[in-house]
Simulated scan of single mutants.
Amino acid sequence: MRLIFLGPPGAGKGTQAIRIVEKHRIPQLSTGDMLRAAVAAGSPVGVKAKAVMDSGGLVSDEIVIGIVADRIEEPDAKTGFILDGFPRTLAQAEALDVMLASKGLKLDKVLELKVDQSKLVDRIVRRAEEAKAAGLPVRKDDDPEVFKTRLQAYNRDTAVVAPYYEQRGQLTAIDGMQPIDAVTSAIEKALSGS
């Protein structure tokens, strides 16, 4: 099962991805984690990425796609994976399709968590308060101003990715404003095709 999770920051992608990982035993792939691992491993694409990052530049789509291509060859990803937070742009979505096709693979489903963005800041503030109350560290991106900047970037760059997959008949929209368990149930229903 090869999946992509789309949706703005705070939509619940990470929460739902963890549940899918546990149930279906497929890895959740974060491009940031993969990038750091490739650099640490000194792989050819990791060496390229390190050179770009050391010079203060942004890693190109070509390098990111190379890292994803390498990662999905690892044993734990052979039966599937979840891409969370990638692709972030239309160019990345197109490059991902080309790379998967070159391996004889395709995406099984693209899930978009649809949320009321005006209520997301409240959700983020509540998440930060709950973390503090539980004695847990508060995520840096749970600061309302940082969050608003991330949301603007999502709307500017990433919101165009959903229509790309919708035109290909791969997108399933899920109401992300439901309670967490209801969102999980809707996702499972979408994955089972019922």
Results as ranks from 00 to 15, higher is better:
Ala131Arg: 13
Asn155Ala: 07
Ala77Lys: 13
Lys103Tyr: 01
Arg139Val: 06
Lys148Ala: 00
Gln92Pro: 01
Gln167Ser: 08
Arg127Ala: 11
Gly135Phe: 12
Val121Phe: 06
Glu112Pro: 02
Gly176Trp: 13
Leu113Ala: 02
Pro179Asn: 03
Arg123Cys: 09
Leu90Val: 13
Leu105Gly: 03
Val161Asp: 00
Met177Leu: 12
Pro179Ile: 10
Asp70Ala: 15
Leu120Asp: 01
Ala131Glu: 10
Glu73Phe: 05
Glu94Ser: 02
Asp116Val: 12
Thr89Gly: 06
Gln170Arg: 07
Val125Pro: 13
Ala153Leu: 12
Val98Met: 01
Gly80Asn: 08
Glu130His: 06
Pro144Trp: 05
Gly104Glu: 08
Met99Lys: 00
Lys103Thr: 07
Arg150Ile: 14
Lys148Gln: 09
Asp122Phe: 14
Ala91Lys: 15
Gln170Cys: 08
Lys109Ser: 06
Ala134Tyr: 07
Ala77Leu: 13
Asp84Met: 07
Lys140Cys: 04
Gly135Met: 02
Val115Glu: 12
Val115Cys: 14
Val98Asn: 07
Pro163Leu: 09
Arg156Asp: 15
Ser102His: 03
Glu166Gln: 00
Arg127Gln: 05
Thr79Gln: 09
Lys114Cys: 13
Phe81Leu: 07
Leu136Met: 04
Ile180Cys: 04
Arg126Met: 14
Glu73Thr: 10
Asp181Lys: 13
Val115Pro: 05
Pro163Tyr: 06
Asp108Ile: 04
Leu120Ile: 06
Lys109Val: 00
Asp122Pro: 15
Ala77Asn: 11
Ala101Thr: 13
Ala91His: 15
Ala134Met: 14
